[in-house]
Design a protein around this nucleic acid. Structure first.
Lengths: 206, 206
DNA sequence: ACGGTAAACGGACTATGGTCCGCTTGGTAT
DNA sequence: ATACCAAGCGGACCATAGTCCGTTTACCGT
């Protein structure tokens, strides 16, 4: 009649065996290291497995697919960015007024996305959209728009404001069409102004 | 001292041999047929080659890669859409006022993108951005914004207006987040209104 | 400690995209 | 008509993502 006496209080994920967790860590480290050493494009699953000292099957069991692995690496390196937004110094972090925070947010997002462009591409669908970071970004944008008094369908408006900062669109503008970064950034600020509405852009700064 | 006496007036692409052109046609037909019969996801290059009755190497020589082939199929089915915009009946085609044309354009684009979603995905980078149709879409949008008297950096603003209609963003909203189509569409119209500016949205309809 | 079981493991195996190279052929000049 | 040759061709070959299954191992209950 006794029951398992440890953690499975929330039972959905039946917890991960210790060796499994260790291998996940080894693999993530190996992948990160290989990615920054050779670029995401040329990292193969066999190489990651070998570098981590595990079998290939293990890589796929832990991360589903190559895209999944890349998404995991990506997620990892976005985590501290999230921390900066949540609790770092203004204007990106809390403390500044919403308009300034929005501007800092857009700028930072632009740079981060370009920095990780290749990795995002390699992560495919998982990288662009469903990687855990996205919901955070969307949520924060909705919040800021709300603070700025924007009315309307905020989830949709937030998506519209974020869309031009997504990797493929940015890639098109910067790499293919060759627009200078500053021009793209200025365009985004203009978009934000139009979405937020003329009045809200003049927050009482002084 | 004699010179080639036929077409190479514009010499950049030295023209395509007749058998090459025939094979391109055979391959494109085979690919189109397989795509609509089995879905783009499960079409393999070997299958296309076999169906067209040519060797595999030929497929790659004509279309570079799988993505290239998919992009070609996509392009093909977008061509008549372009014709509708250029010379079809209003409000999508010429004749209606720019605001109504913009609305019709957005709506039509939304539907077309969703219709071809899988194909666009399979076409990868080529499908989302560099496939020939994109520059047409961007150009038309710039034109309409200009007609509506929008001022600012039109190429960038056009990109911003089109971005939420791109396949990955749409996919996210409709498939993953589960927003109803009409809500996404309404959101886009709202975005267009904000970008164009309040005054221009009230075109003298009656 | 011991034994049972479900999870995890590894690496051989398969499927498929993409390359290579020796052979063939359409087009052109003579 | 003939000769020449660049372009085109086919299919064997390679690299890599992803699957499968017999074996090993961490964890739990006794």
């Amino acid at each position: 009649m006794s029951e398992p006496h440890l953690l499975p209080l929330l039972d959905a994920p039946p917890a991960e065996r210790r060796d499994a967790a260790r291998n996940r860590e080894l693999l993530l480290d190996a992948a990160k290291s290989l990615v920054e050493r050779c670029g995401p494009r040329s990292v193969t699953m066999d190489a990651v497995a070998a570098a981590a000292g595990v079998g290939k099957g293990t890589v796929f069991r832990r991360f589903e697919s190559r895209e999944g692995l890349m998404a995991a690496v990506l997620d990892h390196s976005e985590t501290d960015w999230q921390a900066q937004v949540m609790s770092g110094p203004p204007p990106l972090g809390p403390g500044a007024d919403p308009w300034d925070r929005l501007l800092a947010f857009g700028r930072s997002r632009l740079e981060t996305t370009l920095l990780h462009a290749e990795l995002i591409r390699e992560a495919g669908r998982a990288g662009t959209r469903s990687y855990a970071a996205y919901s955070f970004v969307a949520m924060h944008t909705r919040y800021l728009l709300g603070e700025l008094g924007v009315t309307g369908d905020l989830p949709i408006l937030a998506t519209a404001l974020l869309a031009p900062l997504e990797a493929p669109i940015l890639d098109q503008q910067v790499t293919i069409e060759g627009f200078p970064l500053e021009r793209v950034h200025a365009g985004w600020v203009d978009l934000a102004r139009r979405i937020v509405g003329g009045d809200a852009t003049r927050a009482p700064v002084d």
